[in-house]
Simulated scan of single mutants.
Amino acid sequence: MKIAIDSCAAMHIGDRSEQQDRVGIYPHPERPGCMIAVLADGMGGHSGGAIAAEQVLLKARQNFAAYAPSSESPTEFLREVISDAHASIKLTRFTSEADPHSTAVVFMLRPGHADWAHCGDSRLYHFRHGQLISRTPDHSLVEELQRAGRITQAQAEVHPQRNLLLSCLGAENPPRTELGGTPALQVGDAFILCSDGLWAYCSDQELGRVLMEQDARSAARSLLNLARERAQGVGDNLSMAIIRVVPAS
């Protein structure tokens, strides 16, 4: 069966004074069937978060334009994007008074394949017919404590250090880059990249159901409205990129 891609990117400033999230979906300028989606959450606790997030998208677009599948593997490409963005963000410290940091999620789609990399607590979820296949692990103190069995999910949700990251772009230490992928795309596959301004208010089941039942644009609108309603006036910046695999018409 021939497939098509239904995609949408969306952002909302939430209840913050500045939008420090960035998100974009970009087709390859020369290779049909190839595209990337990129999401970055400029660190809210640092000045210059928006600058850092912009650097992630800029480096991803520049590297993707030069991406050559015959000489560079998806893994190499994804690692290089995060490494180059990290280096660029660190250089920004010396050319401005800002202290920029960012998370990053980079998703690459090729004919029949999807690959991704991330660093920080912005997430990528992979659903198939509404069922969760995988999601990226957060590089946060709270998730490390959960994985070690030292706190429960309920405790994690109210932990006083739930926003503390153990790895991000722009920090002194090199970013922790984790990779994922699926070798065979199928109709019914859906991917969502999102910042914590969205996933903090939506369960895995809710995300999967909305992505299965609605087209990408409608799903983005529904999830944005749901997060804003549940934030009750204290919501963070939120952003998302949705990629759905559908039958070709």
Results as ranks from 00 to 15, higher is better:
120 G>Q: 05
11 M>E: 12
150 R>G: 00
233 G>W: 12
155 Q>R: 00
56 V>G: 05
182 T>C: 15
236 D>V: 05
91 L>T: 06
185 L>F: 09
98 A>Q: 14
161 Q>F: 04
133 I>D: 08
143 E>C: 01
65 A>G: 14
31 R>Q: 15
69 P>D: 12
235 G>W: 03
102 S>C: 15
237 N>L: 06
42 G>S: 05
166 L>P: 01
243 I>K: 08
14 G>R: 10
40 A>T: 02
184 A>W: 10
202 C>S: 13
245 V>F: 10
178 E>F: 01
88 S>Q: 01
50 A>Q: 15
138 D>R: 01
128 R>A: 02
126 H>Q: 07
56 V>W: 08
106 V>Q: 01
234 V>S: 14
84 D>C: 09
79 R>Q: 11
105 V>F: 08
13 I>S: 06
104 A>E: 03
139 H>V: 05
183 P>S: 12
159 H>L: 04
121 D>T: 03
146 Q>C: 01
228 R>S: 11
28 H>S: 11
5 I>N: 10
44 G>R: 02
100 P>Q: 00
36 I>L: 03
23 V>D: 11
77 F>D: 00
171 A>K: 07
82 I>M: 02
218 S>Q: 12
215 D>H: 08
225 N>H: 08
202 C>N: 05
67 Y>A: 05
109 L>S: 02
177 T>W: 13
43 M>W: 05
158 V>E: 04
60 A>W: 01
161 Q>E: 13
71 S>R: 14
54 E>Y: 12
23 V>C: 11
88 S>M: 00
64 F>G: 10
133 I>H: 07
112 G>L: 04
187 V>W: 03
132 L>S: 07
49 G>R: 04
62 Q>E: 12
30 E>C: 06
145 L>H: 02
151 I>N: 00
110 R>Y: 04
218 S>F: 06
207 L>Y: 08
177 T>M: 03
166 L>D: 03
198 L>I: 10
247 P>W: 06
200 A>E: 15
8 C>S: 13
149 G>D: 00
11 M>N: 11
178 E>K: 08
247 P>N: 05
192 I>F: 05
85 A>M: 09
178 E>S: 10
190 A>K: 12
201 Y>V: 06
78 L>P: 03
187 V>M: 04
